[in-house]
């Protein structure tokens, strides 16, 4: 038994960063995920796109068990997170998560947002946590904001602090749940730039997003979801530029056409319609 477990674990360690098998999730009578199979390799950047209500965020939240799957299996970095006996707190340490609504801790300064989890979860001492915290803040270009409380930061700055907070835990992979959807359009660029540089450094990233240009330029693979299933997936040039499924085509037409027609870019009606 233990031998089997060991070999399967080693297999996973040399395999995917995220492995999802036949994942179902229902809220009451509503089935949000209807059998998802997919995986993310180490170093890979995968963008999940799709209309609102298609289950993208739920899928992401099942990966670090913020939502408990109804059935199916999820492995992250060799640990089966759906195993009832797994130490989920330990697994989550390795998974950085960035939320649409930032979720910075408002009673702590930017630097304290980074140091408190390091000290309480990883047991780092004060000096080391502060050193790493400052390094990660510098990483997102916010060195001068370390003593500032979140309420005094712009949305874009808050989201960059949130990314830095996740990075301070030295995660093996990062989950992004519509990280730019709550931002004013002029603040989106800074956040995307940070994410792009993370991708360039080889960070494993699973990104739920409506930013098609980001997906096209940064993603190694794009997954299109609709109605709780993966409709199609592949390299961005294939899924975004020449989709094979009608549902993908109609979604992309709604999202991309206003911009292509020069009617004021994303946010006209297609993108807004796709946002939750």
């Amino acid at each position: 038994m233990s031998g089997v477990e060991k070999s399967s674990r080693e297999d996973k360690e040399h395999g995917a960063a995220i492995e999802v098998r036949d994942l179902h999730k229902s809220f009451g009578a509503l089935e949000v995920l209807s059998g998802i199979d997919f995986s993310v390799a180490y170093g890979e950047v995968v963008c999940v796109i799709g209309p609102s209500g298609s289950g993208k965020s739920t899928l992401l939240r099942c990966v670090n068990l913020l939502e408990e799957p109804t059935s199916g299996t999820v492995w992250v970095a060799g640990d089966e997170v759906t195993d009832p006996d797994v130490d989920i707190d330990r697994v989550r340490r390795g998974i950085g998560m960035v939320f649409q609504s930032f979720n910075l801790f408002p009673h702590l300064t930017a630097l304290e947002n980074l140091t408190l989890p390091q000290r309480r979860v990883l047991g780092r001492d004060k000096a080391e946590a502060a050193r790493i915290g400052r390094d990660r803040l510098a990483r997102v270009g916010l060195t001068d904001k370390e003593a500032v409380y979140p309420a005094k930061l712009s949305g874009g700055q808050q989201q960059r602090v949130a990314i830095a907070r996740a990075l301070a835990m030295d995660p093996q992979l990062m989950l992004f749940d519509e990280p730019t959807s709550a931002l004013d359009p002029e603040l989106v660029g800074d956040v995307l730039a940070v994410m792009r540089s993370l991708a360039d450094e080889g960070m494993t990233m699973l990104v739920v997003t409506h930013e098609m240009s980001f997906a096209r330029e940064v993603a190694d693979r794009v997954v299109f979801m609709d109605g709780g299933v993966i409709v199609e997936e592949g390299p961005p040039e294939q899924v975004i530029d020449s989709p094979t499924h009608a549902r993908t085509r109609s979604f992309l037409a709604r999202v991309l056409d206003p911009a292509a027609a020069g009617l004021g870019g994303p946010g006209e009606d297609g993108t807004d319609g796709a946002r939750p």
Partner: peptide, 16 residues
């Protein structure tokens, strides 16, 4: 609720 979710996603236990 997002505050608890952020804390849990960083690896904090429910009590922490």
């Amino acid at each position: 609720k997002g505050q608890t979710e952020a804390a849990r996603s960083l690896g904090m236990s429910q009590g922490r």
